[in-house]
Lab assay of single mutants.
Amino acid sequence: MASQGTKRSYEQMETDGERQNATEIRASVGKMIDGIGRFYIQMCTELKLSDYEGRLIQNSLTIERMVLSAFDERRNKYLEEHPSAGKDPKKTGGPIYKRVDRKWMRELVLYDKEEIRRIWRQANNGDDATAGLTHMMIWHSNLNDTTYQRTRALVRTGMDPRMCSLMQGSTLPRRSGAAGAAVKGVGTMVMELIRMIKRGINDRNFWRGENGRKTRSAYERMCNILKGKFQTAAQRAMMDQVRESRNPGNAEIEDLIFLARSALILRGSVAHKSCLPACVYGPAVASGYDFEKEGYSLVGIDPFKLLQNSQVYSLIRPNENPAHKSQLVWMACNSAAFEDLRVLSFIRGTKVSPRGKLSTRGVQIASNENMDAMESSTLELRSRYWAIRTRSGGNTNQQRASAGQISVQPAFSVQRNLPFDKPTIMAAFTGNTEGRTSDMRAEIIRMMEGAKPEEMSFQGRGVFELSDERAANPIVPSFDMSNEGSYFFGDNAEEYDN
């Protein structure tokens, strides 16, 4: 993207840094990872977990959730003011799984939030270390993106479920800051804005008074975040219109849905970061690795190297396929839920299948599930090659597409044709070009129609051997075009429920 120079890199967003050079960025990201790792080690000690239990991804998720809940100030305040039966607002906890007599047992633990905050700050040299908290939120978000298709949420806001490739980060909490905003897809931002506008339509006082002023500035800020994701002048001009509207209503909703559809071809720039579970960072720190000293990046080879040398386990339900569970977590670790499966298959070195073909449910185990038949197995999170994460949407291309997802959002900077089903997408653009945004709409449609099938995206960008740390010898991959490109292809993934 041309304006790259004016933006802070995501590592800076990730670490609240002012302008830093590459070495400083690597050190501050490393410091953040160190903090998460030290916190995780301490929690495993508190909970008396064995090494194996500490490497269980379900335990990692519970521990991450506990610290996120302990620092969720708004919710904590709300819980104190609106006490609900049987919930102690000062405590947080969740299921911890232990191996007892050759069987997995679930144990519900409860801790004072104050105590968890103390352990977290102690692991982070006394700081609140917001960057580390956001990092864990993005890992949870990436896992949700890989596990669930947001059909219901899309339909509720009037969008087409086939636009799911635009929904990265749709389950990120509001408090995820600049680093969170960077990884949100165009569809996620559109959905947040539509929800806001709908509230304004239904509630006369939404934009009024002292609160209304705050609401208005939040609305304009979200519009600017979305505008910054678009790469064409016409899309940005249309966002200006939406932002400046005196009284946002149905016309703005129409414009936003139009823009979301246009992003299936004229893709937005959305950041991709490899955020790993805390149970990967903990053992690495415990083994003596100093992330701050060595430096770390979320968008280069580092996460690949770390996963190459990590042992992570997962509980497996009786009829689940461990290899499929591994694929789910591998995609989440690489922030690749909406990437082209052919690119992923090449990088991973084994075939990556669409969601609907995987015999696996989510990673988390519900409290009512029976533990008797639970097994555990090693997650295979290694890769054959590594590639640089991208934040450009890439230019655009036609490809055989599917009944489910009709476009992709690249996660890796790797040369390819970008699949999208042009006739299906263009069919949504018939007729409606009147109104105050008509010239911009016409211009956007013209650009979409001009998108050429034979153009290559990320020209000359390749993948790298894991021994090639400096990215000196790019390998331009070859793809098996007979395979499906979309992950949520004609899909039956479970729906995400809060």
Results as ranks from 00 to 15, higher is better:
R446G: 07
L466Q: 00
I63E: 09
I25Q: 03
M331F: 07
R204T: 08
F458D: 10
A27M: 05
L154V: 14
A451P: 02
R416T: 15
Q241Y: 13
M196E: 13
G228I: 06
A22W: 15
V242T: 03
Q42V: 08
G37P: 14
P83L: 08
S407Y: 14
E465C: 10
E443S: 12
V352T: 08
W120L: 14
K7W: 11
N59T: 01
R436K: 13
L276T: 12
K214E: 14
R19E: 10
S345I: 03
K7H: 11
L418I: 00
S245V: 04
V155S: 00
E339D: 15
N319R: 00
G5Y: 03
K77T: 14
D145A: 14
K293V: 08
F488G: 11
T188N: 12
V329E: 12
C279R: 14
W330D: 02
E484Q: 03
Q327E: 07
V463K: 13
P248A: 01
R416Y: 12
D302A: 02
G94D: 10
V352S: 06
R348Q: 12
G356D: 02
I444S: 13
P410D: 10
Q398E: 13
S3E: 08
V363N: 07
S407E: 10
A181R: 00
W139A: 10
S141W: 12
E81L: 00
A323E: 04
K48R: 06
A411D: 09
A234V: 15
D302C: 08
P173V: 15
M481Q: 15
G5L: 13
M136N: 13
T15S: 03
C279V: 08
D145I: 08
D421Q: 15
L49K: 03
G356R: 12
G30W: 04
A85T: 04
I316S: 13
A260I: 10
A234P: 15
S9F: 04
R446Q: 14
P95L: 14
M1T: 06
A233W: 12
K305L: 01
G460S: 03
Y281G: 09
N250R: 03
E192F: 10
E64K: 04
Q398P: 02
K229C: 11
L341D: 03
L259Y: 06
I194V: 15
S165R: 10
Q4V: 01
A234S: 05
